[in-house]
């Protein structure tokens, strides 16, 4: 079966003589990988951070940036020629990026505000020390 890994795609592009689009493809793959790294950071932050506000900080920022990077990279990778079809695809992806740029921060803001109005207190330094001590005792 055909292997769709990154290197094989790049090699196929070189073989077919589409060298003009190689930089675009490399940038696309690179931004996709960077986006995945940011996404990993988001996931780790969601698990590791102590209270609601820091968690939402990780989720809101990392999610927006990584999704935008991955979608942008995908748009660049699919650019194979300057025909109408690929431009249309790129424009659609850019529209998706625009809406993610608008909606994800808004949703995290709404969540934060709801937590604030529900008297959810941010964690202070003392709380952190206490919880650390507790964790040690439990262990």
């Amino acid at each position: 079966m055909t292997d769709h890994s990154m290197i094989c795609l790049l090699a196929a592009a070189v073989e077919n003589g589409e060298v003009g689009f190689l930089p675009l493809k490399i940038i696309g793959f690179a931004s996709g990988v960077v986006g995945l790294i940011f996404f990993l950071g988001t996931a780790v932050g969601m698990v590791r951070f102590p209270d609601f506000y820091t968690r939402m900080h990780a989720a809101g920022k990392g999610d927006t940036l990584s999704t935008m990077l991955m979608l942008g990279g995908f748009g660049l990778v699919t650019m194979e020629d300057f025909s109408v079809g690929s431009w249309l695809l790129l424009i659609k992806i850019l529209a998706v990026i625009l809406f993610i740029y608008l909606t994800t921060p808004t949703s995290s803001h709404a969540l934060m505000r709801a937590a604030f109005e529900d008297d959810e207190m941010p964690m202070t330094e003392d709380d952190l020390k206490k919880s650390k001590r507790k964790g040690k005792r439990k262990k």
């Binding site: 608008l102 909606t103 808004t106 803001h109 709404a110 505000r113 709801a114 109005e117 529900d118």
Partner: peptide
């Protein structure tokens, strides 16, 4: 029990 006004940022978005 959350009595809140419509949020400015949310409504504009």
């Amino acid at each position: 029990e959350v009595e809140a006004e419509p949020d400015l940022i949310v409504t504009n978005t």
